[in-house]
Amino acid sequence: MKAPGNKSPTITDIARLAGVSSITVSRTFTDPYKVKTLTREKILRIAREVEYVPNIFAQNIKSSQSPIIGIVTDDTFNQSYSYVIQELCLRAEAKGYSVMIFTTGGGRASEVKAINTLVGYKAAGVVLSVISDTPDYDVSHLKILHHSPTKLIQLDRQFDTSLPAVFVNDERAGRLIASVITEKSWRHILVIGGHEHSRITQARVNSILQNIPATTQVTCLYADYRYDKAKEIIAAHFSSGVMNYDAIVGINGAISLAARSVATTWSLKSVAFLSIDDIPNAEDFGFFYPSVVHDYKQWATIVAENLVAAIEDRPWQQRTVINGFLKNYR
Rank of each mutant, 00 (worst) to 15 (best):
N116T: 12
V112E: 14
A124K: 00
L145V: 00
Q154H: 10
V99W: 06
V166P: 00
G125A: 08
F102Q: 09
I131M: 13
P135T: 13
T161G: 10
E111G: 07
F102E: 05
L128Y: 10
G106P: 07
H146W: 01
V130K: 03
R172Y: 08
F102H: 11
A165V: 07
V99Q: 06
D160Y: 14
Y97P: 14
G106M: 04
T150I: 11
T161D: 12
V119H: 02
H146A: 08
E171F: 05
Y137C: 11
Y97H: 11
L118M: 12
A173P: 12
V130Y: 08
Y97T: 14
P149R: 04
D160E: 13
G120I: 09
K113W: 03
S132E: 09
L163R: 14
K143P: 01
V126E: 04
K151W: 00
S110Y: 04
A109R: 12
V127A: 04
I177G: 01
D136W: 06
G120A: 06
R108Y: 01
N116C: 07
T104R: 06
D160K: 14
T161I: 15
G96E: 09
I177A: 00
H141F: 11
L128Q: 05
S162W: 07
A173K: 03
L152M: 06
F167A: 15
A114L: 03
L145Y: 08
A165E: 02
S98K: 13
L128P: 10
Y121K: 14
A165N: 09
K113C: 01
Q154R: 05
Q154E: 06
G107W: 06
A109F: 04
V99M: 10
F167H: 15
D136H: 13
A109V: 14
D133F: 12
L128W: 10
K143W: 05
V130L: 09
A173L: 07
T134D: 09
F102A: 12
R108M: 03
T117L: 07
T103C: 08
F167P: 01
A173M: 07
L128C: 08
V139H: 05
K122A: 13
I131S: 14
R108G: 01
L142V: 03
S129M: 13
D170Q: 15
T134G: 13
Y121H: 14
D133Q: 11
A165G: 05
D133H: 11
L118V: 09
T117E: 02
L176S: 06
S110R: 03
I177S: 02
A124T: 11
N116A: 06
K143F: 08
G106V: 02
